[in-house]
Write a protein that binds this DNA or RNA. Structure first.
Lengths: 135, 135
DNA sequence: CTCGAGTTGATAATGGTTCTCATTAGCATT
DNA sequence: AATGCTAATGAGAACCATTATCAACTCGAG
């Protein structure tokens, strides 16, 4: 037997699905603790690593070096538009960029190209919230 | 006076320029130590942060969460094509992608968009080296 | 040369992530 | 339902990259 079903893994999967955008393992752990689950931090990390490995979630490094995770709605290749204030994430397609990346890699003799394409910005509501009070 | 010229900063700048691709602060520090400079780790970090701030170097997060630095040949905005085997880095322009990123952010109501666009692959010589012997 | 402020470097502190290991609990079998 | 095997769990230690601390130092202007 290679993998067992435990309520802990379910809870992590659920919590990740509930999150609107990318969340850190730490905050996910904090949330789960508040929900009266005595779940351990190490378990959250293990569950997230497992989900990421199986393609059910993907991860990226925040500029601060923290690892962020998010449940994937599709398991296909896609990119992200991320609000740097509230963490809201929009999955975006970028067929043109795919082509460009492939072409660029080929031009320089590179093979097996993978690419990282993510956009960080301020979503409409956050921009509003930050600007509004000041005016 | 806001900034002084010290031999330490010069050495860090030189070491960074000598590196073919991205290097971590740790390995840069190790190299400089081997060169009989009693340079301190904190100083290397400070110098790198300074170079990155002034645009003489840029940084990215490795998948392992380490910060990597590289001397920039141009100070303009650009992207990278990185060999995942030998670390060789090619700076690339991507005007189309810039446009696309800006447009995509706007479509979703995002402001102040920054983007991360990097391509990882296997450079020609590494692909050759890895394939050749096997055939 | 002298003075003052930016720098340096050894070390402690921080904080995220991984490891350890005794205990717990899936799950297939009896 | 009871049993046995073993993966999974969780508390805390271990790790490691990075940052902060602070006394000693040194660049460089006057």
């Amino acid at each position: 037997m290679a993998q067992r079903n435990t309520w802990q893994r379910e809870r992590v999967r659920d919590a990740l699905a509930d999150a609107r955008g990318f969340v850190s393992a730490q905050s996910l752990h904090a949330d789960l603790r508040q929900a009266n689950t005595g779940i351990g931090l190490a378990t959250v990390y293990r569950a997230l690593a497992g989900l990421a490995a199986s393609g059910e979630a993907d991860s990226l490094q925040s500029p601060e070096g923290e690892a962020l995770y998010r449940a994937c709605t599709t398991q296909e290749h896609h990119h992200h538009l991320i609000c740097r204030s509230c963490g809201l994430t929009v999955e975006i397609e970028a067929k043109d960029v795919e082509q460009w990346a492939k072409r660029t890699a080929a031009v320089h003799g590179f093979r097996d190209a993978e690419h990282v394409v993510d956009i960080f910005g301020l979503c409409a509501s956050c921009a509003n919230r930050l600007d509004g009070p000041g005016a």
